[in-house]
Design a protein around this nucleic acid. Sequence first.
DNA 1: CTGAAAGCGCTTACAG
DNA 2: CTGAAAGCGCTTACAG
Lengths: 349, 349
Amino acid sequence: MSTPRRITLKDLARELGVSTATVSNAFNRPDQLSPALRERILGEAKRLGYRGPDAKARSLRTGRSRIIAVILAESLTYSLNDAVASEFLSGVAEVLDAQGHTLLLLSSRQTQAQFPGSASMADGFIVYGLMPSPTLLESLPSQAALVAADFDIEGRPAIHVDNEAACQAIARHALATPPRRPAIVNLRLTAEPCNGRITPAHALLGAEQTITRSRLAGFYRALAERGIDPAEVPMWNIEENTFEVCAPVLAPILDLPGDERPDLLLCMSDRIALTALTLAEQRGLRVPEDLRITGFDGIAEGQYRAPRLTTVRQDSTEKGRMAARMILGLTPPASSLLTTELMVGDSCP
Amino acid sequence: MSTPRRITLKDLARELGVSTATVSNAFNRPDQLSPALRERILGEAKRLGYRGPDAKARSLRTGRSRIIAVILAESLTYSLNDAVASEFLSGVAEVLDAQGHTLLLLSSRQTQAQFPGSASMADGFIVYGLMPSPTLLESLPSQAALVAADFDIEGRPAIHVDNEAACQAIARHALATPPRRPAIVNLRLTAEPCNGRITPAHALLGAEQTITRSRLAGFYRALAERGIDPAEVPMWNIEENTFEVCAPVLAPILDLPGDERPDLLLCMSDRIALTALTLAEQRGLRVPEDLRITGFDGIAEGQYRAPRLTTVRQDSTEKGRMAARMILGLTPPASSLLTTELMVGDSCP
DNA sequence: CTGAAAGCGCTTACAG
DNA sequence: CTGAAAGCGCTTACAG
C-alpha cells in the first residue's frame, strides 16, 4: 500500500474553501470564528483523518513546545529505580499533566558530552539533585526557564528541604536514649569517591556542593547538645544509594566484635538504613535491642514493613510539584524550603 | 538588561560570510566541508554563543524529533513509583540515551481526553502494559512507529514475558510441598473493579485483555498436575499494585481463624506478596512455617530483605531495552517472548 | 468573522 | 567544497 502524503492544515483549508488562518483558529481559538463554521471544519478534519496542527510546526512557529525537561543528577537507570527521585518525578508529572504539558527525561550523566539536541526543545528545565557540569548547563538554551531542586544555581530559584533541621531532629530523638557507640553513615560526602570508613585524610565536599553537608551539620548539632564530641563519632561514606553499593560498606560494620560494633547508626538515607536492617536481620542482630537504625527520606519501603523504619520524611512529591508549578509560571520564581516530619518507627523507638 | 534576540544559524552565516547550508553542514555533516572552515564556523559559533541548530526548526524540517514517547497504562504518579514500570522505563532510557534519543513520558490515564499536542512530536511510541482507548490510540500520528509491551496491538510488534510458563513453574515449586489450603491473589483479573474475594458471580477479563489471565492459567495447570481442582482454590483480586490497596484485601485473609487461613498464597506480583509478608510479620505469623508466600516480578525490594521472597523474575529492564531497540529500528519489528527465572527465597523454600 | 501574507529556523537537493 | 533557493506546517498581526 502506498502511504498517501500526510494531510496538512493547508490541505484541509483548500478542501473547505477557507483560509489556513480560519482552520488554525478552529483548533486554537474557538472564539475567532462562528460555531457553525468551526463544526464544519472539525467535522471535515475528522473525516479526512487530520489529527490537528502538527506539534513540530506549531512549536517552531510559537517558540513553545509545552514540553518541560527534568535533568536528573544520576543516570536515568539509577534515578528511575530510586524511590526518592521517582517520587519527585511523579510530583512534577502530576502538575505538568494537569497543565497539558509533557515530561522529558534528561540526565546530566549521559553517554554524550552534550545533551541531545532534542533537549533544547523544552520550554523549561527542572534540574534535580546536583549541579551539572558548567558545559552541560551552558548547552541549554540561554533564555530557558530554570528551577533547581536540592542544590543551588546562582540567580535561579531553588527548592530545598530543611536538611539540617531534619537531621538535628532525628538525631535528637535517637540520642534521647544515650548510645554507647553511635556512628554516622553518609551519602556522597567525600570530595573523592569513597565507599568505606571516612578518615581525617578525606577531604569533604563543601556545603554549596552537597546537601549532605547540611545533614551532617544537623547530626553534629544534636551530638554536641548531648555532650558528645562529633569528632569522636566514626563515619562511613557511601557513593550510591543502592543495596549493591551499601551492603559491602555496611557488612563490615555489623561484623565488628560486639564491643566495637556501633549500637546506633545514623544513616543519611532510608536505602542505607534499610540495607543495614536487612544485614542485621540476616546476622540475627536484634533491632532495636542490639542496634538502633535511623534513615532519611521516608520512602514507602521503609514504612510498609516490620519493623518499621525510624526516619524523617521529606515530601519529594510536593518538592516536584513546587518545581513544576514554578517552571510553568503558576507560582512566582522564588526559592523555598520544605519542612520535614519525624517518623518514629520500630528501628529506633 | 535587554535580552538580545537569540542568534540563529542565519546570523552566524552572515557574520562569517558563508551560506547557511555551509553552517548547517558544519554542525551536521562534517564531511561536507573543509576541516579548517568547519573549525572557523564552530569557533565563531562558540564566540557568539550560538548553541547549535534549533531543535524545533530542525524537527520540522527533517520530520524527526529524536524523541521517543512511552505511553504508560497507569498514571505517571503510579507508574513512576512502581518498581516494575520503573525498571522497564530504565531499560528504555538506557537504549535511547545511547542512541542520542530522548524519553518523553505519557500516560493513557491522564486528565485530558486526548494526549497533549506535544505528544505527537515523538518519532515513535512504546505502549506499555495496557491497551489505551481506541480514541487515544487514534490521536497518535498515523504513520508513527509503535511497539507494545505486555499486551497486543493488532498488526504491531509486541514484547511479552512467558507469563503462563512462569506461573506454572513457581506454582509447581510451591505445590511440591502439598499445601492444605492454597489460595491465589490476582492482580486486575475481574472485568469490573474488585478489591476482595472473587466469587463465581464475577466476570473475568479475557486473555486478550490482560496478561493476568495467562498467569492464572499457569497456576491452574500446576494445580491440576497436582490433582487439585482449581475451582476449589479460593481467589482474591486486587486492582492496584500498591501497599495501600493490597493491605485491606490481604488483612482479612490473614485474620481468618487458623483452620480456615490459607497456608499458601500464590500472588501475582511481588508487591502483593511483600504486603502479605509485612502483614504476616505484624501478626506474628511465621513465614514459611504458618504461611508460604510466592510473588511475581523479582523486584529488588523482595530480594534485598530477610526473609527473601520466593518469586519468578521477569527482566523488565531487558523488556524495555528490546522495545527501545525495536522502535529505533536497531532490531527488526517482530514480536518476542522473554523467559523468566524462578527465584527460590525464604518465603516459600 | 474571515483571508492574504509573512516568517518561525532550519535542511537539503541541486547547480556550480 | 560551497551557495542560492525552496519549503517543512504552522500561527499571527493586520487589513477588510
